[in-house]
Design a binder for these strands. Structure first.
Lengths: 248, 248
DNA sequence: TCGAGTCTTTCTCGGTTCGAGAACAACATA
DNA sequence: TATGTTGTTCTCGAACCGAGAAAGACTCGA
């Protein structure tokens, strides 16, 4: 049997019905707090509940599906702002029963974005909005668990990758970078030590040679400006302040 | 429309045909070299090629499917040895065209096992065997890329998790643990420094108080025995010997 | 305009960790 | 018994880290 013959005989119907979706955990930072993009579901199941943006996969790669869903829900489809969004696969969720309609395997993606404008509702969602992660209540399906996994992944990746630069504008100050770490880790960092570490890691940031036009709202000198370097991992790493021994 | 009404009207056929499989990257260490479990495909497509063990997902959680496939391909279905295998999700692969038959989304799993016996071929595979990873040639589908991703994940997880203990027996020596690191990272480690670091990380290993009955084949004192501790991450981490700056 | 407070940036200091090397005893093999 | 190998412990200097502080530069309110 040749490959062509096999293809002709192949019957997709022999597999039980099963759908694949992508769900996107899109994170950004506003006013020093981590926010996640949520939509309000208009259709059953979980009508009226809030959920992660997502939808069924079409004839496209998985990451293209994730980017498409993100563009639709933010209403930034044609905007160049989405090009700067860092997108990576989180993991897949496929427990039977996680969707009451049928077996649905969802490939979750994690997106990191600089501060984006408020979304306009796309066609799929009754409404979309950025919600502070500590004010997110119950979510549809198992989306609360997916969000928790995404946040933990983000916290971990700050340690050993230059991920924080995805949350700030193209040019940024060390203090803005420190604010990203403080928001995601939920604790303040020593400004002096943070400054020393960031500048000592090769390829993390590079100086633009320029200085911000204005200082912070409450005073201080005009900070220097930096842009992201070419490093893809941080050596040495920027470790989180010591966790209690119990966590391990 | 109530939830029940919605379920009754729901038509799974409106989605394009699509299949979900699990593929398993099962790693073990034999004679100081990393091996991966491969099967020889008996059916089209890629008949005669080697591939990762895997198959279609049934009415079961994804990780249960991965464990089932692993049991079938190793022929260790009833054996208690599989309980000691560490299994975790790697990531999903779903590019259109990765399977010539139809759209197939594969959820890849990564398994770490102490030295297992040679597999007996299961029903799905013409033959299964442990192959040194540096002797693996071309593989069916995109399995070579999946294997590469799995190896990179394994290398990274050795740094900050007690994963290495999954490759050794329940009781082990520090030297055996060091051999795991040497095999996965592909370079020798300083015995003295490794010893100091492993014992200094809280919860990595705990002493059994006993000593091995015999020394190594080529001499040396009888080493002390340890078992895995209760830590789920290593603080401080066991960092890889410095990579070149170019890699970053 | 002046003073108080804030913030960036740089420096110091002591404790901890790390890599490299060495010492020593226990053991296997020839 | 002689020789080589290995597990374990130790030393030493360099690098790194957390905490604290100092010096300016700046904003805001009095």
């Amino acid at each position: 049997m040749t490959e062509a013959e096999f293809l002709a005989r192949y019957d997709p119907g022999e597999f039980p019905p099963l759908a694949v979706t992508v769900d996107v955990v899109a994170l950004t930072i506003r006013a020093g707090r981590v926010h996640v993009l949520l939509v309000e579901r208009g259709a059953h199941p979980f009508a009226g509940w809030r959920a992660l943006p997502g939808g069924f996969v079409r004839d496209e790669p998985l990451d293209a599906a994730a980017r498409r869903e993100l563009a639709e829900e933010t209403g930034l489809g044609d905007d160049r702002a989405l090009d700067r969004v860092h997108l990576e696969q989180l993991r897949s969720y496929g427990d039977p029963g996680r969707d009451p309609r049928m077996r649905v395997v969802s490939v979750a993606y994690l997106a990191f974005a600089p501060s984006l404008p408020d979304p306009r509702a796309g066609s799929d969602a009754a409404g979309a909005s950025w919600v502070p992660v500590d004010e997110v209540g119950e979510l549809a399906f198992d989306h609360a668990a997916i969000l928790a996994d995404g946040l933990e992944r983000a916290r971990a990746k700050l340690e050993y990758t230059p991920l924080a630069t995805a949350f700030v504008a193209e040019e940024f100050t060390i203090a803005e970078l420190r604010a990203v770490y403080a928001a995601v880790w939920g604790e303040e960092l020593h400004p002096g030590n943070f400054h020393r570490k960031v500048l000592s890691v090769p390829g993390f940031v590079e100086s633009t040679g320029e200085t911000a036009a204005r200082a912070g709202e409450r005073g201080g000198p005009k900070p220097k400006l930096y842009r992201a370097g070419d490093a893809r991992s941080l050596h040495p790493a920027l470790l989180r302040p010591t966790r209690e021994d119990g966590v391990r």
